[in-house]
């Protein structure tokens, strides 16, 4: 049985790969930051409603 290996990427393809991966990571970071802010805001609203905060 002959083993096959993936063809190595050209420098241009590697650059495309890195750019796409970075874009995805930035989008994920932005989504998580927004979610954290949202949870913080919801907690503040809920606590102020239940009288935990003035």
């Amino acid at each position: 049985m002959v083993e096959t290996f993936p063809t190595p990427l050209t420098p241009e393809e590697a650059a495309v790969l890195i750019r796409r991966r970075r874009g995805r990571n930035i989008a994920m970071l932005a989504a998580l930051l927004c979610l954290s802010l949202l949870f913080y805001a919801i907690a503040m609203v809920k606590m102020s409603k239940t009288g935990v905060m003035p």
């Binding site: 063809t7 995805r24 989008a27």
Partner: peptide, 17 residues
């Protein structure tokens, strides 16, 4: 599909959207 000869497919954030 992305034209990468190494057979690697990388999605973009736009694909997930």
């Amino acid at each position: 599909s992305l034209g990468l000869s190494g057979g690697v497919s990388e999605s973009t954030a736009g694909d997930w959207l």
